[in-house]
Simulated assay, not measured.
Amino acid sequence: MVIRLLRVVVPVVVLAASVLIGWRVLAPAEVLEPATGAYPVAVTLPPGTTGKTTMAPLIVDGRIRVYAGARLVKADGPVQAETMYTPLWSYRRWPQRLAGVVAVAATVVTRWSDGEVVALDGRTGEPVWRAAGPAAGSFTGRTGSAAVWAPPGLHTAGTSVLIAGGRQLTARAAADGTPRWAVTLPPGCGDGFVTAGGRYVCAAGAWDVLTGHPVRGWPNGPFSAVGCDVARSGCAGLRDGSGQGWLTGGRRPERAPRLDAPDATAAGDLVLSPAGGAVTAFRAGREVWRWAGAARVLGARAGRVVLLAADLRAVVLDAATGAQRAAFPLYVPDERVEPWQPDAWQLTDGFLAVQRLGPDAGGFYTTDPVVVAAL
């Protein structure tokens, strides 16, 4: 009798245990590992490379590096660390996939495949607010560069984060998630960008980022943004549907014929043209300075223009005069020195992070493809 009972009970117990384990593994869950150490101190360093990372970092608040994984977001620091360190904090949602990340000051805003938006305190990793939204795409790539440097449907504008999904565009205060406005976009708008002058622009028009009101008098799209910060925000210029260039640092676009050239970009009120073996800066159509040498313009921040020279040096110029402030190779010490190609990057007031591809652009340059430098 006892043996028969055991034959019945044991399989039931095993099945129940399996169900419990399966539930614990597969059930929807959020796992937070908050920071236990001190928040890194912001530092000013001499120009030069500081380290390299396996994943693409979003540099936040000049103090930490935030990384995107398929189902988690995590941070380490300080920014100038030579390699990736044990996370200061991490946040995971199961079974959802991470769609993108943006940051405003020390607030890190994450968006997930189920449309949930969760804002984290970058100093601790603790959630500070959350909001529901339309379903989003999901994580792609190995390093997470698209999620942190060009997140679909996520943009920043001053103290606001803009969330786009379907035809809905919503602005929320980054600090506490307070809704500021919401609009329904016209058909065919697509995911747009935010200009330095405070406009959200898509193929069908422009909207004021403070009020959500439509703005008239814009050229016809579709548009190609130039001179943007990460998350396609703070864009200094655009080219319209006919290929004409416009500066977008003001409330209304300003025609800039020098920006018509496909390789030209914008930085503040400057048009930067890397052509003819030099980088030339134009203001109001007139040349104001010229740097001799072939280079790609990586952007402008804090009164400086940053170039990637043909010999893979970072060159830092004074934006007003073109005077060279610094130049250094974008390799860390003891790293193999071979040709590579820039794939994506982030430029902040004090740092530059560049994701590097191999010479044939068929794969990453080494297992730690992102080089970080102080400017």
Results as ranks from 00 to 15, higher is better:
334 D>K: 12
281 A>Y: 01
307 L>I: 04
262 P>M: 10
248 T>I: 01
282 F>Q: 04
277 G>H: 07
245 G>M: 10
275 A>C: 05
302 A>P: 10
288 V>P: 02
294 A>W: 03
251 R>S: 15
318 D>M: 11
250 G>K: 04
320 A>V: 00
269 D>W: 08
246 W>E: 02
239 R>A: 13
243 G>I: 10
308 L>N: 07
294 A>L: 08
348 T>M: 05
256 A>H: 01
351 F>N: 04
299 G>S: 06
284 A>F: 13
306 V>T: 12
254 E>F: 12
342 P>D: 15
319 A>R: 09
278 A>L: 13
276 G>L: 13
322 G>P: 02
276 G>Y: 09
349 D>Q: 10
313 R>Y: 06
277 G>V: 15
241 G>T: 10
317 L>V: 05
321 T>E: 01
282 F>I: 01
305 V>F: 02
319 A>E: 14
249 G>H: 09
346 Q>K: 07
249 G>R: 07
257 P>V: 14
242 S>Q: 12
352 L>A: 01
306 V>W: 04
351 F>M: 10
335 E>Q: 10
331 Y>E: 10
316 V>G: 03
319 A>M: 04
351 F>C: 11
285 G>A: 11
241 G>E: 05
282 F>N: 07
307 L>F: 00
294 A>R: 10
267 A>V: 09
277 G>W: 09
291 W>L: 00
316 V>Y: 00
300 A>K: 02
256 A>P: 08
351 F>S: 10
340 W>D: 04
326 A>K: 06
253 P>V: 08
274 P>S: 09
334 D>R: 15
255 R>Q: 10
311 D>S: 08
304 R>I: 01
244 Q>T: 14
343 D>E: 15
247 L>E: 06
343 D>N: 14
336 R>V: 15
298 L>T: 03
334 D>W: 07
347 L>Q: 09
281 A>I: 02
288 V>I: 12
287 E>D: 00
343 D>V: 13
274 P>K: 03
267 A>H: 08
257 P>H: 10
276 G>H: 05
258 R>G: 11
255 R>S: 13
255 R>E: 02
283 R>D: 04
278 A>E: 14
273 S>W: 07
246 W>T: 02
322 G>E: 02
263 D>I: 08
265 T>G: 15
285 G>P: 11
